[in-house]
Design a protein around this nucleic acid. Structure first.
Lengths: 189, 189
DNA sequence: CATGATTATTGACAATTGTCAACGTTTTCA
DNA sequence: TGAAAACGTTGACAATTGTCAATAATCATG
């Protein structure tokens, strides 16, 4: 099962990077069911997750308990609340599995151990952080000024697989529009 | 003049951190006038800027040449297009001075030199990156689903000084609403 | 200080979107 | 399997917002 993670890391750092086995031994394999929470806001985020299979939702609640989904992360990607994780501060976001998922989790202790002992590993961390940042920047730049219809077209362009894979309620919360508007406009695209 | 930068770094790393003078010798002081561009999309971003005085706008153009402003950065903060800077790839964003500004610029060579020779310096970089990331995440979470009026209240809450300081055209592009809507709703807050 | 250019405000109107409610479908789980 | 819950679609309507145009105010520059 850890072969998936091995392949992922070799894809980024080349074949058999130094310390790979150390990394693989530091991760814990976990399975979570649909709708299971991996993090609730207010808790400290203890893990960085690699998603071998499944899909996670990162989101916040507004005053009326509506969800705003900041990110939807699918297999072969990393997911965490990095700010909370790296500073050990209470998380501002929630993370929930939206499908039954298989994850590999690294806790902070192992993470710091890896950062200091496996030279290549902090490259992976820097990559994760920079990619997360780039995604956020992209989302702000291409999203804040868009109409509902343009947001749906955005989804089809940049995250096409999500359209058929996820419930429309979730997609609407990712796009920042109401379910009804999403339902109506998707037909018009 | 470099005293401002010295104070800023000591504020983050404690008094007289190791290698501080090296850092101060690596920066170049520059002055830019209002509306002057520091970066145009398509160029590689060559510098990280510390703003001693003034204000910078980070933005993109849409198809109709309207501006969407991702960030407005004022004095005592760092500003760059970090993705382009760190990977030496063409920038996706523009940076422009919206006031006459005094900046300190570090180019990539000096930056990498500092990262490897001044142990404390990569802490500063990590801080910059994480803070930038946290800002983006916060903006997405608290913004995507907001109405125009709520966005104005958001600005008053999180960036109150900008309201009086900047032209409303710029603020509207930061909030992702039209100038006219901004003009009308600001009275109602 | 004058004048042309940019920016801000306001009105009118159309387009977009949210909300509420009803209804049919699908999913869940005991 | 069957009942209850959750989800998706559609209609009606009101609220919000953008666009276009006219006018007022402000700014930049000679």
């Amino acid at each position: 099962m850890k072969e998936i993670l091995r392949t992922h890391i070799e894809k980024r750092l080349g074949p058999e990077p130094e310390g790979l086995e150390t990394v693989l031994n530091s991760v814990r394999e976990i399975k979570v069911g649909r709708n299971e929470f991996l993090l609730k806001e207010g808790e400290v985020c203890k893990y960085v997750y690699y998603i071998a299979k499944g899909c996670l939702q990162v989101f916040v609640y507004d005053q009326s308990l509506n969800e705003t989904t900041r990110d939807i992360v699918v297999e072969d990607n990393w997911c965490s609340e990095l700010i909370s994780f790296s500073k050990a501060e209470p998380a501002l976001e929630n993370i929930r599995a939206v499908e039954n998922s298989q994850l590999f989790a690294i806790d902070r202790n192992n993470f710091e151990l890896l950062m200091s002992s496996v030279p290549q590993f902090d490259i992976v961390y820097k990559q994760i952080l920079e990619m997360s940042y780039a995604n956020s920047v992209h989302r702000i730049n291409t999203f804040v000024a868009l109409s509902a219809l343009e947001r749906i077209k955005w989804l089809i362009e940049y995250r096409p697989s999500l359209m058929s894979r996820l419930p429309s309620k979730l997609i609407a919360s990712y796009l920042g529009i109401s379910q009804e508007t999403f339902s109506r406009l998707r037909a018009k695209v």
